[in-house]
């Protein structure tokens, strides 16, 4: 009788534990692999130039110094000026926040109209907006430059905001439309009978439902706009460049000894805001993506 009880309980946990251990080992290996570049960036940014030259790439810093970070932030040279990333970082903030907000609001209204107020030609307009998502950046550069010139916005931050809003509307409309299409049409009918108008229904009924998709849209748009390089380099001039362009200038325009520690610190600084947005709103991101697609 003891045999009967002991045998299965003895063999099973060992096999299970072994499998588990293998699984974790494999996952750990992948994690290490993906974290390696970040590790190199962080450690290099904390080393002095002297140590970088003499030490190994993957070694821990012998002496931690934040000198490179200070230089990257406020002293590194982008061509002739040597103000570091700071002014450009603020350019990006001033650029990204309105661009994200405006494109999200316009996308929400567009999606609401296309999904819930089916007017003649709504599907055609939606198809065209969708088509806009697939137009390569390069194609719009020249016409856009001409447009900005005509509007008197060439080389300004409002001009860049305009470009990002226009380019983002296709995506934000797609997100909101697909989310709102899963909401029954009877809701709008009921509100109409209750006496509510177009904006009242949007504000009181649809917006409170939209948190997950707003988070998705904000993350998407913020990442796109913050990380954009092509529009930034094409439509800005000295003084209005976003952080990505400044980073490029810091890395590529140094003469003489390459300051790897400064380059690494600058790259991390430029990437921090998007990282922050993911950490803060990441769980809503997954939730919002599935809420939009599964519910319908």
């Amino acid at each position: 009788m003891t045999d009967l009880v002991i045998n299965p309980t003895q063999s099973r946990p060992w096999g299970k534990i072994l499998l588990r251990a293998l699984l974790f080992a494999l996952l750990g290996l992948f994690a290490l692999f993906y974290l390696m570049p970040l590790f190199v960036m962080v450690t290099t940014s904390l080393k002095s130039l002297e140590e970088i030259r003499t030490g190994s790439l993957i070694a821990f810093p012998r002496e931690i110094t934040f000198e490179a970070w200070r230089t990257a932030w406020s002293g590194a040279c982008t061509g002739i000026q040597c103000e570091g990333l700071r002014p450009y970082f603020w350019n990006s903030v001033v650029l990204a926040i309105p661009a994200v907000l405006i494109s999200t609001v316009v996308g929400a209204l567009n999606g609401y109209v296309i999904a819930q107020w089916r007017f003649r030609g709504a599907n055609l307009i939606f198809s065209l907006l969708l088509f806009g998502c697939f137009i390569p950046f390069q194609v719009v550069l020249l016409p856009m430059a001409r447009m900005l010139g005509l509007m008197g916005l060439a080389g300004t931050i409002p001009g860049l905001i305009f470009v990002h809003v226009i380019y983002g509307i296709g995506f934000t409309t797609l997100f909101f439309r697909n989310y709102y299409v899963t909401i029954p049409q009877e809701l709008v009918k009921a509100a109409k009978v209750d006496g509510a108008g177009f904006f009242r229904i949007f504000w009181s009924i649809f917006l409170p439902l939209s948190l997950p998709i707003i988070v998705v849209t904000v993350i998407w748009q913020f990442t796109q706009i913050w990380n954009d390089f092509l529009f930034g380099v094409s439509f800005s001039q000295a003084g209005t460049q976003p952080v990505t362009v400044a980073l490029n200038n810091i890395v590529n325009s140094t003469t003489g000894v390459k300051e790897y520690n400064v380059d690494m610190a600058a790259a991390i600084i430029a990437a921090l805001p998007t990282l922050l947005v993911y950490v803060v709103a990441g769980k809503y991101f997954i939730r919002g993506l599935t809420a939009g697609s599964v519910k319908g």
């Binding site: 029954p184 809701l187 009921a190 109409k192 009978v193 209750d194 509510a196 009181s204 009924i205």
Partner: peptide, 30 residues
């Protein structure tokens, strides 16, 4: 005339209750 001015009230098949409002707010929304 638009629905809100027809002096009608309607009950829908799916009930069409406003999901983010409490029952009281649903009833008093109109």
């Amino acid at each position: 005339v638009s629905p809100k001015d027809r002096d009608i009230a309607m009950v829908f098949q799916s009930y069409a209750l406003y999901p983010t409002m409490s029952v009281a707010k649903n009833i008093t929304f109109g």
